[in-house]
Amino acid sequence: MTLYERLGGEPAFQAAVDDFYRRMLTDERVSRFFDNVDMDGQIAKQKAFLTYVTGGPAAYTGKDMRKAHEHLWSKGLGDEHVDVVIEHLGATLIDLGAKAEDVAEVAELAESVRKDVLGR
């Protein structure tokens, strides 16, 4: 069973994505990357993000990850921002009932696409 399924799948993620997105919007280290005008679109994409990193059904490739973030590179997207994302991701997952070892596993998955997200 994937972590995604163990945490309750789609219904549980509806609330989790709000929690995660509130954390991103109120953290001034990363909020500027999220001040996109279309909030509904942002929410859907952050939900895709959470689904993906917890092993849920979301079929992204490294190439997709590059494409999803390439418009952020010129805004200075860097390692420190990936660290912040992983930090808030952990907090959201713990609130959702994940265990420390689950969070470590998710962080590992996020790490594995770091170079794509940053366009290296």
Partner: peptide, 10 residues
């Protein structure tokens, strides 16, 4: 299309 799994809504 995007995630092909019912989350991204594209």
């Amino acid at each position: 299309s995007g995630c092909r799994a019912g989350t991204c809504c594209k």
